[in-house]
Amino acid sequence: MDRLLDVRQLKTAHLGPLDLAVQPGELVQITGASGSGKSLLLRALADLDPNAGAVTLNGEPRDSIPPVEWRRRVAYVPAETAWWGERVDEHLPADFARPKALHLLEQVALPEESLRWEIERLSSGEKQRLGLVRALMNQPRVLLLDEPTANLDLENTKRIERAVRAYLAEEEAAALWVSHDTLQRQRLGGRILTIRDGQLEAPAWT
């Protein structure tokens, strides 16, 4: 099968060297003890931290893609999303398509007006849902989700899970999902990889 994201001999200050291959439409769960480097792996893949190794997207080497373009295609969504403007729509890509935004908002149960909401008044759960919508507006090929449901109740957690699944199916995109929640792990399914001592391995319980 074609590889969407292919990682070979990835090395950072704390990880690797490690290999990873992800297929289109695939959701790979990343687990590991706290401090094992799950976030560091996602940050290295988004090219936010210095790292070495051969990384390709659809066969295109990362070094041949400008960093700005790379981060739009390989989108990192941190557990705590950052906001810098006054209103939500200031944080969307300048040329965003409105129907697409509405479609995504609907999937995470937010109204159209939420685009004009003030950042100051957002709850942490709203920030997390809007953070995902914002990242999906760039139409990334790979989603790097760092505990994307950490601040959400079960209902909204399931909405996010469904929204990501739907996105992956529609766009033939892939996701790496860092999660601590055992029940969520079962709901999400798919391949599970554990980080231990800077290496990726299949977890002991499978």
């Binding site: 936010l48 950052a82 810098w84 914002r134």
Partner: peptide
């Protein structure tokens, strides 16, 4: 965090 948030959005 804000700076990296903007970078992650492709700024």
């Amino acid at each position: 965090r804000t700076i990296e948030g903007r970078l992650a959005m492709g700024a």
